[in-house]
Design a protein around this nucleic acid. Structure first.
Lengths: 344, 344
DNA sequence: CTGAAAGCGCTTACAG
DNA sequence: CTGAAAGCGCTTACAG
């Protein structure tokens, strides 16, 4: 077994190979022809050679995926939903991540495999990568950008409405009476971080609150960077009474640092994290969070890709912003009396 | 561009297509022939169609990879090193994870893509999966099992020497004078967990120490499960003076729970984690750990796969145990006097 | 060192 | 509803 071909099946079923092919592709067949083919397939253990099929059809039903190599587990979760959704639609995924190697080369290598589409988590504004993406687009290969609104790339995009989500999170803290609100988020270069930061800044501005010195913290999306940054934060002469954290791992790091510094949540400091519900539920069962809709991002991107491949989406590029949801729980309380903002 | 073929290159360079093919495959060429082909390739923007090449050669240079869908980020890190190493060797990876869908079907679908090999993180003893793996092996498709020593599957295996590593970690605690040592590790079904647990049990036995009731804790390899388990542990009438944790995430959960319960590390309780150095370095810079050699697992598996494909490994299946390394830092101290084991 | 020819395993018009 | 034939873009013996 193993290299049984359509020819063997045809011979055994006593039909032409084109008939077997028709069977495989769901064409109309007389009942007994169908039965004979099915018998032959079962008896021989035939499985279609997808490589040959891909070559002939000019479609591989493979999607190339490029993700970051950060520790942030968001990437892995995202891949899983993406892959699961695409699998249901009949696609398999080739996954690569940023690495020592040149990202634009990775994209080109993926293209040499004749992937039917490319889903990229792309945020570093690298001109070489930009070119590789443009080439793909010019050659008619659909590209979906995740978590990036790169305005100079005219292609489909799926992103989380980070700005609004952050705005609303900060707003809730303000409405509880907080004024000294800090934020810790990813590196400035990352559009996700900067959108989350913008939400914070815009909200503070909207309510006329000042940004205290040392209250805006950056780092990688990691437990470590957040832990270190928040440790410093809590040592400030005037530590914040509320903190907004930019990711799952960052939330853990922040909580560790806060507790270690001897502050209680939410009595001394309120906290709102940014992440995925199911995950934080168990440990941080009382954490108020902005829910990162990973499943919806994955499902949306998969669906968009499928339609694009079928040519159902019309010509123009679409940008889909998946909304984030606030999950109110118990880590936001009023600040100590003397530190209220006096607005409410 | 985009569908420039070898034929176009041949025409422009005024040579036969077989000559272009020879160029692409590194054959010997006269200098001017070579130059003409290179000129044509550059001018036309030709890139070899890997699908056609795969079909003709009967080799796809693609490796199918199956991993868990657990939260544990070990999987993602592992994939990254695996993929990076394989990429260097000229392979791309199709990644799928356990999911709602049938794992044996996933393996078969991967095989229909004519992957050159399969690298599987397989631990659930599912007979259907077992069959799918056996089929692959029978058809001559190399399979590497990760972190599993499934004795009834005669194939290459790469695993961490969990048992020894755990034994040594626990031994260090015992030599520091500990007697009341607890362990928190993954679900019993997982061979990795059970090996780590065995190391603990064997070491305790070797030194004649009793296992206190409630000191052996299970959970998923997650921050959450570990946090919950260790929270209970620290509420026992006689909490342990030392704890061995079974994974990266579990270590975080344990530390959170310990600190929250008001215990100091290492004054009140010593701790040794099981994980990857680079990652924990920043936050838990003083944590004594058993280093999980993710990079070596990935590199070893990639190398083994490559040789297997080239047919260099001879006939018989190899099992490679990658040793873990103890990284001594500062989270192991002597227990309080009255709780010493009196052995040292 | 180079070319002409066959063929990898399918699918797709085109006849019948 | 079914079959014979051409061809997808390469690689690989085989000649020369």
């Amino acid at each position: 077994m193993g290299n049984v071909t359509i020819r063997d099946v045809a011979r055994r079923a006593d039909v032409a190979i084109s008939t077997v092919s028709r069977y495989l592709n769901g064409g109309a067949l007389k009942a007994d022809t169908r039965a004979a083919i099915e018998e032959a397939i079962a008896a021989l253990g035939f499985r279609r050679n997808e490589v040959a099929s891909s070559m002939r059809r000019g479609q591989t039903r493979m999607i190339g995926i490029l993700l970051c190599d950060t520790i942030e587990f968001f990437q892995y979760t995202l891949y899983q939903t993406l892959e699961a959704e695409l699998w249901k639609l009949g696609y398999q995924c080739i996954l690569t991540t940023y690495g020592n190697l040149n990202v634009s080369d990775k994209i080109r290598t993926l293209r040499q495999r004749n992937v039917d589409g490319l889903i990229l988590y792309y945020y570093l504004p690298d001109p070489a990568v930009h070119d590789a993406i443009t080439e793909a687009l010019e050659d008619g290969v659909p590209v979906i950008l995740l978590d990036s609104d790169a305005p100079d790339l005219v292609t489909d995009k799926v992103l989380v409405d980070n700005l609004n989500a952050s705005f609303r999170a900060v707003e809730i803290m303000i409405q509880k009476g907080h004024r000294d609100i800090a934020v810790v988020t990813g590196t400035e270069k990352h559009p996700v971080s900067s959108e989350r930061l913008s939400g914070y800044l815009e909200c503070m501005k909207a309510y006329g609150l000042p940004i205290q010195e040392g209250y805006v913290l950056y780092g990688h999306f990691s437990i470590a960077d957040s832990y270190n940054a928040v440790s410093r934060l809590m040592k400030l002469p005037r530590p914040p009474t509320a903190l907004f954290t930019g990711s799952y791992h960052m939330t853990f790091g922040a909580i560790m640092a806060i507790r270690e510094a001897g502050f209680r949540i939410p009595d001394d400091i309120s906290i709102i994290g940014f992440d995925n519900v199911e995950v934080s539920e168990a440990v941080l069962h009382d954490l108020t969070i902005v829910e990162q809709p990973v499943d919806r991002i994955g499902a949306t991107a998969a669906d968009l890709m499928h339609r694009r491949i079928l040519g159902e989406n019309g010509e123009k590029a679409r940008t889909i912003r998946v909304p984030a949801r606030l999950v109110m729980r118990n880590t936001v309380a009023r600040p100590p009396k003397h530190r209220e903002n006096g607005l409410f």
